[in-house]
Design a protein around this nucleic acid. Sequence first.
DNA 1: CGGTCGGTTGAAACTGATCAACAAGGGTGG
DNA 2: CCACCCTTGTTGATCAGTTTCAACCGACCG
Lengths: 228, 228
Amino acid sequence: MTLQPTACPAVLPAARPAAAVGDDVFALAAETQTLERDEVLFYEGDDARSVYRIVEGMVRTSILLPDGRRYVVDFLQAGDIVGLTASDTHTYTAEAVTPVTLSRMSRRKLDDAVAVRPGLGRKMLATIQSDLVAAHERLLLLGRKSVTERLASFLLILRDRQPADKAPTRVVHLPMGRTDIADYLGLTIETVSRTFTKLKTAGVIRLIDTYEVAILDPDQLAVIAAGK
Amino acid sequence: MTLQPTACPAVLPAARPAAAVGDDVFALAAETQTLERDEVLFYEGDDARSVYRIVEGMVRTSILLPDGRRYVVDFLQAGDIVGLTASDTHTYTAEAVTPVTLSRMSRRKLDDAVAVRPGLGRKMLATIQSDLVAAHERLLLLGRKSVTERLASFLLILRDRQPADKAPTRVVHLPMGRTDIADYLGLTIETVSRTFTKLKTAGVIRLIDTYEVAILDPDQLAVIAAGK
DNA sequence: CGGTCGGTTGAAACTGATCAACAAGGGTGG
DNA sequence: CCACCCTTGTTGATCAGTTTCAACCGACCG
């Protein structure tokens, strides 16, 4: 029995260990649920009665400051788990960025499953530890990186998370709006927009449309993301 | 069997569940090690062969960007665990802020202990989940809070982590230098210094000396930290 | 076909960084 | 034991980057 059941991604745009927790468990006893665009799955502070595994679509998790400032914790995709927390209430709000399909499982059932299968607990531990590493990388990004470096990092993160079947991943799909990106990177929408333009002018990317970016010079983008 | 073995701190300056993992295990089979001020415990990238529990003193964990920009991940105190990672190499550097005493335990031994005592795995899970919640709060802080809000939050975090025996916690001890604080809050030392002065001038705190701050108006400080 | 929403672009204001000087300790060597 | 130096923190002046305010544009919808 070991503490490192899965290898941890070493590079900065941490690839998510897709479905690390969900694979088996959610097959057992989960009901399907769907969400419209912008529909809320749960609010920060709600009782954490269920855990969800995303089947399709994108979910955004966020935290609000009393005066309305918002911070987007993460964008979650197919295979990712939402709502897993040590607390008995959710620490963030979860909403649908696109139409979403997900499997819901009661907290109780998941706990039972963990009791029966110790390997599951280890998988959860590994998943959360990799989330923590990703959070540390985000902290470095927010605390010490310039706007351009942040956006470059963001594009690379999204590219590396994209479904593998879209093989020649030169095109990054951005299902979320500029406001979401701004709240994820700690910026304003205007600055995000300007920085996209800047990268475009520099010849590093091409803006196919608002929700589609072509990476023209991946190496250069990586250099920028790494920090000058 | 449940996923929430310990209550999760609800308020923002998350109190650390002191020694959540270490209590029992490190009593079994650990050797003591000491560090001088600024001595390195391990570097980012080193093999993660051991896990440490701090007995006394303060340790800082940090990550470097290629060009020298630094980000302080956290300040760790007596009871906290250092070096616990899912990866087989450390994802950050750990150094002594003050002279430090710690218990060292090999990764192997800890793994064995976890195998024998399933409750231990759950404790680790809870500890890491609370770390993750703390990381999310830091992300909000770095992404969306002003300088004054950040420093106020920092003082409250440190106050709430202080040993309980120093009961009327109106005085916060800052073992670390201004550079460390700046790298923790994503600022420059000049800005940190100016902001201390600003809070002092506002009558919210008093600077006893460089390493000691008296909180004159805790309510006001909390209001500032919460975001205006 | 107007209205609304989200995104882009421009100009001005502001916040925090940078550059620079100075002060206060603490340690070391004469 | 004292003088000096080196480190760390504070304060001031200027600068740069990002936000804010504002206008405009295009797409989607009713």
